[in-house]
Write a protein that binds this DNA or RNA. Sequence first.
DNA 1: CCGGATCCCAGCGGATACTG
DNA 2: CAGTATCCGCTGGGATCCGG
Lengths: 107, 107
Amino acid sequence: MKTYTVDNCPIQPVVDIISGKWTSLVLWEISQKHNHYGELKRQLGGISTRTLAARLKMLEKQGIVSRNVFPTTPPTVEYVLTKKGLDLAPILYAMRDWSEKYDNTNL
Amino acid sequence: MKTYTVDNCPIQPVVDIISGKWTSLVLWEISQKHNHYGELKRQLGGISTRTLAARLKMLEKQGIVSRNVFPTTPPTVEYVLTKKGLDLAPILYAMRDWSEKYDNTNL
DNA sequence: CCGGATCCCAGCGGATACTG
DNA sequence: CAGTATCCGCTGGGATCCGG
């Protein structure tokens, strides 16, 4: 029998992506077409700039979102899901459905 | 527009369940019919008893697994997925599929 | 407007030893 | 065999201030 470790778990890549605090929420908001940095900041009441920036950078590095800068004044930055990110969305919806179904119950 | 916070994120319940270190792996092994404590310990090379016990207790508390004790000598304990846990399994498989598809690529 | 840099602290989890 | 108890190092992330 194959033994798994934390580093080759077949689902670990997804777990790593969504695990950090606020990460799933950031991803959710972007998937709901809240694409601008400021908009995200407003939607996510209480997130620190440090964390939001870290999450966006991580998601970009993972190829889940792409970062587009508009050289307006003042500057605007938008984040949109890539193909890879769009493919992840159904999983997020499945997670939401499961969460709603079993909300507060242990049955 | 509805503003989400970390505590009412629609997918947070699932995120909370699988986020902890080793958690996804423990869940995976149980879903692969490795149901005994000792078997899990062996399959998960390197996990500490502290963490394994904590994960199993948490999953039981969440209603994802049920704990069955066999009063043999020496005692045997098995953990099996509940209905709630079985409903979670498809999500784990979807996560695995996504992980395999995008393994190491950022496309 | 969009972040980067720094400081700081709670809590997660590893190692180890012990119980029923 | 199947855990619990204790100690402790390390990292994640909040608050705050600064720069382009």
